[in-house]
């Protein structure tokens, strides 16, 4: 059952890639998509400059956020854990809002870099508070507390400085709107983290059995946790920097995938990336086509699916 799901997931993703190129404010027939890649074609601007980079971005961001979630869930050993839960996403959000509030005239193109710093600081803060030998429960609870703290700081800034914050609002909900080749180019170097994540598949299987068994099987549990969380922070930070925090993706995708293909990370990690890509492609497609030409942020779509899923998960967790 495990490996048999992979071809279906790949087909579903390809189908959604094509759908994302075809549909939007203007529908473009399937046959004209390839023609739209040529300069001078009537659809060149829509396809090449607008939908193609955005579609690729949705695929990559979805895959990377889902992979980050799987890495975090893998080492925290809790299906409720994800970069959101650890406060990494909210750390990025707070840094960005802070930047926009106190430097209202500053260059908006610095926003990604600021978000990156914010998520790294949030991760280091978690590490500093918990230490390298902390229990997984402590890590998760501290992360939730920090995330709540950052969220309340964001709310406070929005109440105190309502005017300056308007720019931040759209970004904060997580959106692919207006993202193009420039943002895609910024994301590309971070793809190098993916092979490192896949390299961890075997030790992640063993840490799933508890630290005692993992150590007895020759795994350095603390080193693995550090490496895994560092990669997850890098993946999350780069995605949040470009699209804003797209909520629940890192939580839902790995969990759904585990139900689909089981818990072996050699299959789970690649399958999670496919499911994450599928979810964000779907979310962005619906967000763009539900009421054209008005667009909803994809982050709202993932939250509409993700929040009830999170609650359901919470209720059935003993």
């Amino acid at each position: 059952m495990a490996t048999r799901s992979l071809p279906f997931l790949i087909l579903a993703m390809i189908g959604l890639l094509i759908a994302n190129l075809m549909f939007g404010a203007v529908s473009i027939p399937f046959k004209q998509i390839l023609a739209g890649l040529q300069t001078g074609n009537e659809h060149y601007f829509t396809i090449h400059e607008y939908r193609l980079p955005r579609t690729i971005l949705a695929m990559l961001v979805g895959a990377m956020m889902a992979l980050a979630g799987a890495l975090v869930q893998g080492v925290i050993r809790n299906p409720l854990a994800s970069p959101d839960v650890l406060g990494v996403s909210h750390g990025a959000g707070l840094a960005a809002v802070f930047y926009m509030t106190f430097f209202p005239n500053a260059d908006i193109s610095w926003l990604p870099a600021v978000a990156l710093v914010g998520s790294l600081v949030a991760a280091l803060m978690l590490w500093w508070l918990c230490g390298s030998h902390s229990s997984t429960i402590k890590l998760a609870i501290t992360g939730v507390a920090l995330a709540a703290l950052y969220a309340s700081c964001i709310d406070f800034l929005m109440l105190v400085k309502p005017l300056e914050i308007n720019n931040a609002l759209l970004w904060l909900t997580g959106s692919l709107w207006g993202r193009g080749w420039n943002q895609l180019a910024m994301l590309l170097p971070w793809l190098l983290l993916i092979p490192f994540a896949l390299w961890l598949a075997k030790p992640l299987n063993l840490i799933h059995l508890g630290d005692d068994s993992a150590i007895s099987l020759g795994i350095k549990a603390n080193k693995l946790r550090l490496a895994s969380l560092a990669i997850a922070v890098g993946l999350t930070a780069s995605c949040v920097a470009i699209c804003g925090p797209i909520g629940f993706l890192g939580l839902v995708a790995p969990h759904l995938t585990r139900k689909l293909v089981g818990g072996r990370h050699q299959i789970l990690l690649p399958a999670t990336m496919l499911v994450g890509a599928i979810l964000l492609l779907l979310a962005d497609l619906v967000a763009r086509t539900i009421d054209p030409p008005i667009e909803l942020p994809a982050g709202i779509m993932t939250a509409i699916i993700g929040a009830p899923y999170f609650l359901w998960l919470l209720l059935r967790t003993k």
Partner: peptide, 27 residues
């Protein structure tokens, strides 16, 4: 160990196979 977590989505044969980890390669 005295107590073990209950791994999700892992078959019996896969868990037993994990015992071979000190002898297998990176994958």
């Amino acid at each position: 160990p005295q107590t073990q977590p209950i791994p999700e989505g892992i078959k019996v044969k896969d868990l037993v196979a994990y015992g071979r980890s000190p002898y297998t390669g990176f994958w």
